[in-house]
Design a protein around this nucleic acid. Structure first.
Length: 417
RNA sequence: GCGAUCGUAGCUCAGUUGGUUAGAGCGCCGGUUUGUGGUACCGGAGGUCGGGGGUUCGAGACCCCUCGAUCGCCCCA
């Protein structure tokens, strides 16, 4: 008598279908189109990697590594991790496949990523990103190209309204170290007035205090030194070239001296496209330059820059979309017609006509199916028509109907004449 | 990991201070129309009230635990 319970989906995972999937697919399709315009090559990487790939590159102390990764031992006892981000795996692939020969290499990819986090709207344990990277390019032109591409992508998705590009520089290692020192000195002076979280940050990741949302931290953060005072001439020139390039390309941006990055490997350019329409999950696309990462994974000095964007968040901004309507729905009536319809619809599809078949229910039912599918035409084949080598083709928008020879149906219902 | 709100048909939601067989709209199925859609009318199926325990004569409503979603924090796309 025990009832069989259907297993529940894993927390933080989602099944995407219907209008939501149409939006999701639209984001991916648009990304694929845009990345071709910029001549980025598509690459596929494994969903899991040796744990060391992420542990070394992201920094052992980051939250992602210390408490958010899906890490497990496989049957041979190797520690593997489901990728929590793209960049580390891309770099690993770059090194182990000898892709250095293609440098500067412009790569694009997309797919699922995994983080053990508290789910919220627009935040999942299995989530999806689109990703673009330029490996082996130390020139500011690479930063500019990526940012212009991101800007065009958001515009082509029609979601640039209310989205702002926040731009900052973290400088070269020398600048960053000097800035970090100045920041620590500043915050140490006010340690007692900082929030508990920021007191912890001061020991672990002092840069993070800058984007604290705690009101108690605001006045101290406002007085904190900005990196401009610590920038080397080289780093300043680099940043100036990036901003000048954006201006030349007509990309709007705003300087945000409080913008920092979560992972240790970032240098120079850091950026986020932030929307005011998604609450706490406002960052819709983010990235920066990671000149130190390839070395952290045992490779030669390879300056690189990249970004990633959450597909779910972009899809939410895009809004629900309807599936594309079919050109024709074939409605066979009677056994002989139903058999013949298999050949007729196959012929339509071979001619590039998007077609579906309504093989269930009475005539009314089948017409309704054609209507619901948004079909331009219903192709009705009864035994009478079949005997004459014809079909009744009804224009569903106009409501008109005419008899068409079987071999002419494809031409009649095709939208590309 | 922390705080808060919520969880009733496939979907969106109603369900008076706990009180008989839990309702609506949409959707689905059937019919009015045995070969003609979008409209209309009629009828029907469909609910472990997230799950478990407790209080009570009696719980969808109250209490506890648990799972999940949502909104913040943390972190991040």
């Amino acid at each position: 008598m025990s009832k069989i319970n259907t297993p529940k989906p894993v927390r933080g995972t989602q099944d995407i279908f219907g209008p939501e999937q149409e939006a999701f697919g639209h984001v991916v399709d648009t990304f694929e189109r845009v990345r071709r315009l910029y001549n980025f090559r598509r690459a596929e990487m494994p969903v899991f990697e040796p744990t060391a790939v992420f542990a070394r590159s992201l920094g052992e102390t980051t939250d992602v590594v210390s408490k958010e990764m899906y890490t497990f031992d496989d049957r041979s006892g190797d520690s593997l991790t489901l990728r929590p981000e793209f960049t580390a795996g891309v770099v690993r692939a770059y090194l182990t496949n000898g892709w250095q020969q293609h440098a500067p290499l412009k790569l694009a990819t997309h797919g699922p990523l995994f983080r053990y986090e508290r789910p919220q709207k627009g935040r999942y344990r299995q989530f999806h990103q689109i990703d673009a990277e330029i490996l082996g390019a130390g020139e500011p032109a690479a930063d500019v190209e990526l940012l212009v591409m991101a800007d065009q992508l958001l515009k082509e998705l029609g979601i640039d309204d209310g989205v702002t590009l926040h731009l900052n520089t973290l400088g070269d290692p020398e600048s960053r170290a000097a800035w970090r020192e100045a920041l620590v000195a500043h915050f140490e002076k006010h340690r007692g007035d900082l929030s508990e979280d920021s007191q912890t940050r001061l020991d672990v990741n002092p840069l993070r205090i800058l984007d604290s949302k705690d009101q108690r931290d605001r006045p101290i953060v406002d007085e904190a030194p900005i990196i401009d005072d610590s920038l080397t001439d080289e780093a300043r020139i680099f940043f100036d070239k990036v901003t000048a390039g954006l201006d030349a390309a007509g990309v709007a941006w705003t300087r945000n001296a409080r913008l920092v990055r979560g992972f240790d490997y970032y240098r120079h350019t850091a950026f986020e496209f932030i929307t005011d329409r998604l609450g706490a999950q406002g960052t819709v696309l983010g990235g920066g330059r990671y000149d130190g990462l390839v070395e952290a994974l045992g490779g030669p000095h390879t300056p690189s820059v990249g970004w990633a964007a959450g597909i779910e968040r972009l899809a939410m901004l895009v809004g629900e979309r309807e599936a594309l309507a079919v050109d024709a729905v074939v409605i066979p009536l009677g056994e002989a017609a139903e058999m013949a319809a298999n050949g007729i619809i196959a012929d339509l599809r071979r001619h590039g006509v998007t077609a579906d078949m309504a093989y269930r229910g009475n005539m009314k039912k089948r017409m309704k199916k054609a209507n619901d599918a948004g079909a331009s035409f219903a192709v009705i084949i009864g035994d009478d028509e079949l005997a004459n080598g014809k079909a009744a083709v009804k224009d569903l928008a106009a409501g008109t109907q005419s008899e068409v020879a079987l071999e002419d149906i494809a031409r009649k219902v095709s939208r590309v004449q």
